[in-house]
Design a protein around this nucleic acid. Structure first.
Lengths: 189, 189
DNA sequence: AAAAAACTATCTACTGATAGGTTTTGAGTG
DNA sequence: CACTCAAAACCTATCAGTAGATAGTTTTTT
């Protein structure tokens, strides 16, 4: 299984990108953390641009799989909404980390166009999931006061991402929870 | 008035920080845009860390002045909330720019601690303003369905900042408006 | 033995920063 | 008003450090 090093590099790079930004770490840092020489990284990822693409691809696939699971096992709108919120909540480790999508949005200029495409696809996918969740929540009554699922979804993704940012700004995960308190109160499982 | 160059540098740096991030531009870029040599920048800002601090200080003061104006001229909760939203909306030029506060939050690791302190002060100030706005809106009836002004404020700043991020991700300012549509509908002037 | 993986050594480009010299400005003085 | 001179502003030249990347070699794996 020669993918060990490769995965270790991806893991390390993802963690770094989400805490210090994609421009905030170097191949030297990566090499130091994984335990190989920095020149060896190029064997797995010819360029850093290449690494950023594969990073975002993996991230997108992971989230798509999570959604697919909810598609096959139908659940209430509130449950689906909670699932999305929780997956973002997990990313907020000690208030240091943000979604890779957020990280790549801020440093967009120094990334290949392909990453921006993947980021947009990611956002579209999550927004669709949220729309479906609010729609379901409206029908099954598990989310209170839903009148326009599309508008709710358009507000919810920014809210969640902004909440991660807030937690990072103050280095305090509770700010994430505070930001989502109002939304969570509408959930009746 | 020898402050011309200095202000030009601050303006250029702020624009750059908000579009490509603080690590995304160099003294060379700045020099090129302002029309002096990069070594000359050090005469105004000894180090880039220094520049980041002065940038955030100016930004904070600008916002504090905007708030002070609303303190002396009391207005409805909805008007105050709109003022905050609009000031963030202005920052979204062609979906390329985010609040300096957001930019400095993401690249926090490469900035002096003093900047983080100012960012926190900024966030506290805006949150207080929002809390006051929701409180007023609850009393004067200009904002519908307010039951907990503190919780509303804790959600609103992340929502606005996340909306900027969304607009930047898709390079489309209308995403900012979409994200805030639901909130705006609650305003009755 | 061929292919994959990691290595050493080195390169070019660019970063922020410094040293030290030149020009510009502007307030004070005769 | 003209002159002086110091401070402010800007310059050229250069530095040490680090970035990502490449070439070519050795080790490990299969």
């Amino acid at each position: 299984m020669g993918n060990d090093t490769r995965n270790a590099l991806l893991d390390s790079a993802e963690r770094a990108a989400r805490t210090v930004g994609f421009d905030g770490f170097s191949y030297a840092d990566l090499a130091n953390e994984v335990g190989i020489r920095k020149a060896s990284i190029h064997h797995h990822f010819p360029s850093k641009a290449n690494l950023s693409i594969e990073l975002m691809q993996r991230y997108l696939e992971k989230f798509e799989m999570a959604r697919a699971e909810f598609r096959t096992n139908p659940s209430s709108g509130a449950t689906q909404l909670s699932a999305v919120i929780n997956s973002y909540r997990e990313g907020v480790s000690e208030g240091k980390s943000v979604c890779l999508c957020v990280s790549f949005t801020t440093s967009r200029e120094s990334l290949p166009e392909e990453v921006s495409v993947l980021v947009r696809r990611f956002r579209t996918m999550v927004t669709e999931w949220l729309t479906a969740a609010f729609h379901a929540g409206q029908s099954d009554g598990s989310i209170a006061n839903v009148t326009n699922p599309t508008m709710e979804a358009a507000a919810t993704l920014p809210l969640i991402e902004g909440a991660q940012l807030a937690a990072r700004a103050e280095e305090d995960p509770s700010l994430f929870d505070n930001a989502l308190e109002l939304l969570k109160q509408r959930l009746t499982h």
